[in-house]
Design a protein around this nucleic acid. Structure first.
Length: 429
RNA sequence: GGAGAGAUGGCCGAGUGGUCGAAGGCGCACCCCUGCUAAGGGUGUAAGGGCCAAAAGCCCUUCGAGGGUUCGAAUCCCUCUCUCUCCGCCA
C-alpha cells in the first residue's frame, strides 16, 4: 500500500507515476474521502475526549461524596453522540481502505516505459543457445519417451494443468530443488526456511495478493470456521510475512531467506495459454529468495538477489537473459522487476524462469513490518524483495530440453550429479 | 478430542470498576559520582492516528481478537484465537 501521507501531499505526482503502468488514480475521489475521514475523526476524537473527562469527573465527584446526577446525564448524551460518530468514521475508513488496498505500487524511476512485454528491456545475456545437429524435441516429447512425464494419469487424477513425474525425471526434479537450496544457503548466505503452505487472508493481504487477486488463489474452507485457508501461490507469502507486525533491530538486517515450497495457482485468467507441458501448472515447486533490508540498501539487494538466481542457471549450464520489465508489465506490488528468461530449444525462445522484484515499502506498510532506524530512533517501514531462485518445474523443462541427446536421453549437468547418485545420464526406464 | 492454566510495553512482571498507558525489574540511551576493575546515583525510554507550516504542546486509540454490561473496563460477562500442562489419538 502506498504511504497515505505521500498521497495526500502529492496526489498529482503519485497519479502521474501510476499512469505509467496504465493505472488511473481517481485523485478527486481520494481527496474527498480523505476530507470526510479527517472531519469524522476530529469529531469522534472531540466527543471521546469529552466523554473521558466527564467520566473522570464522575469518579472524582463520587470520591468527594458530591451529587453526580448532572454529570451522569451529560454522560449518557455523550455516549449516544459517540455511537453516531463511530459509525460515520468506520464507514469512511472502510471505503478509504478499499481504495488504498487496490492501488498498485509506485514505479522506480529506472523502470522502462511501455505498455506490455514487447517494451521490456534486455539487460544482459549469458551463454549461447546450443546448436543441435538434430531437431531438438520439447520437454513433453522427451519426458513421455523417457517414461518420466505422465500428463494422462495426472488428468485422470486431478484434471488439466497437473503432472505426474516418475523415475529419473522425478529424481531430477527433486535434485534441482536440493541443489538450489544448497547453493543459496552454502554460497549466497541465505537462511533456509520451512513454512506453512496454507495461510490466512491477512498474510496474503500483507504481500498484496488480497484483496485484489483472490480469483488467482485456491481457497480451502475449514468446516465450522469463519475464516478460510488459502494455498500459497508462492513462498513469498509465508516467508515475507515472517516480519509482519514486528520491529526489526538494525543489527539483524539484512535478513535473507530461501524456501522450497509447492505453489498453487488457479490460473483463472490463463485459459488456453501454455496448456502444453509443465510450463503453467496448478501445482508446481519453486525455490524462493526473500530479502528484508534497510530502505537505502534495497536496489543493491535487487541486483544481488537477481545474480543469485542467475547463478543457478549458470551452474546448470542453461543459457538465459535478464530483462527489466517495463511499466505496463510490472506486477502490482513491485517497484522494479527483473525477469530471468531461460533458453528453451523446444520452443526456440527465452521463457520466464524467475522474477525478481523490489517491493520497497509497499508490502512492509501492509504488513506493519518495520525496523528501528538508529538515525531517527523511530520505527520505519522495511523494504522487501523476492525472487524465484528458481522455479523448479521450469528448470526441469530447461534441463531436459537444453541437455537432450539425439537418442532422447538427457545429460545430467555436473552440478546435479551429486544429487543424482552420480548418474551422468537419464535414459528410459 | 477431553480437562486445566495462561495471554499486559523490547523482555520479565504487578495490577479484580474511576486521575492506569499501566508499579517494579531487566535491557537500552544520556548525565553525574567514583575511579583500583567492579560498582553507585539521576533522567529518559511503546506503537498507531489526529490538530499544527513545523517544533513544542494537546487530543484519540491500543493491556491476545471481537462483542456486551457501565457515566467509566487491563480489571466484570460472552464468543473466538493462540500458548503451556495432563489425558486420548496420531506421522
Amino acid at each position: 500500500m502506498l504511504d497515505s501521507k505521500q498521497l495526500r501531499a502529492d496526489a498529482a505526482g503519485v497519479a502521474a507515476n501510476l499512469a505509467r503502468r496504465g493505472f488511473t488514480l481517481d485523485v478527486a475521489a481520494f481527496n474527498a474521502l480523505e476530507e470526510r475521514r479527517k472531519a469524522a475523526q476530529i469529531e469522534s476524537d472531540r466527543v471521546r475526549a469529552e466523554r473521558n473527562a466527564n467520566a473522570k469527573a464522575v469518579g472524582i465527584a463520587k470520591g468527594r461524596k458530591e451529587d453526580p446526577t448532572a454529570l451522569l446525564a451529560r454522560a449518557e448524551e455523550l455516549t449516544r453522540q459517540l455511537e453516531a460518530s463511530d459509525t460515520a468514521i468506520n464507514a469512511v475508513q472502510a471505503e478509504l481502505d478499499d481504495l488504498l488496498l487496490g492501488i498498485p505500487n509506485l514505479l522506480h524511476e529506472s523502470v522502462p516505459e511501455g505498455r506490455d512485454e514487447s517494451a521490456n528491456q534486455e539487460m544482459r545475456r549469458w551463454g549461447e543457445p546450443r546448436k543441435f545437429d538434430f531437431t531438438p524435441k520439447d520437454h513433453v516429447e522427451l519426458g513421455e519417451q523417457l517414461g518420466g512425464l505422465d500428463f494422462e494419469s495426472a488428468a485422470r487424477i486431478s484434471g488439466a494443468r497437473f503432472a505426474v513425474l516418475k523415475g529419473g525425471i522425478a529424481r531430477l526434479h527433486r535434485a534441482l530443488a536440493q541443489f538450489m537450496l544448497d547453493l543459496h544457503t552454502g554460497e549466497h548466505g541465505y537462511t533456509e526456511a520451512y513454512v506453512p503452505y496454507l495461510v490466512l487472508g491477512p498474510a496474503l493481504q500483507g504481500t498484496g495478493q488480497l484483496p485484489k487477486f483472490e480469483q488467482d488463489l485456491f481457497k480451502v474452507p475449514v468446516a465450522g470456521a469463519e475464516s478460510s485457508f488459502y494455498l500459497i501461490p508462492t513462498a513469498e507469502v509465508p516467508v515475507t510475512n515472517l516480519v509482519r507486525d514486528s520491529i526489526v533491530d538494525a543489527k539483524d538486517l539484512p535478513k535473507k531467506f530461501v524456501a522450497h515450497t509447492p505453489c498453487f495457482r488457479s490460473e483463472a485468467g490463463a485459459a488456453g495459454k501454455d496448456t502444453r507441458g509443465l510450463i503453467r501448472q496448478h501445482q508446481f515447486e519453486k525455490v524462493e529468495l526473500v530479502h528484508i533490508v534497510k530502505p537505502a540498501d534495497s536496489y543493491a539487494a535487487l541486483e544481488e538477489l537477481t545474480s543469485h538466481a542467475e547463478k543457478v542457471l549458470q551452474k546448470l549450464e542453461l543459457p538465459h537473459r535478464v530483462v527489466a520489465l517495463c511499466a505496463g508489465d510490472i506486477g502490482f506490488g513491485s517497484a522494479k522487476t527483473y525477469d530471468i528468461e531461460v533458453w528453451l530449444p523446444g520452443q526456440n525462445k527465452y521463457r520466464e524462469i524467475s522474477s525478481c522484484s523490489n517491493c520497497e515499502a509497499f508490502q512492509a506498510r501492509r504488513m506493519q513490518a518495520r525496523w528501528r532506524n538508529p538515525e531517527t530512533g523511530k520505527p520505519e517501514p522495511l523494504h522487501t524483495l523476492n525472487g524465484s531462485g528458481v522455479a523448479v518445474g521450469r528448470a526441469l523443462v530447461a534441463v531436459l530440453e537444453n541437455h537432450q541427446n539425439a537418442d532422447g536421453s538427457i545429460t545430467v549437468p555436473a552440478a546435479l550429479r551429486p544429487y543424482m547418485g552420480g548418474a551422468e545420464r537419464i535414459t528410459g526406464n
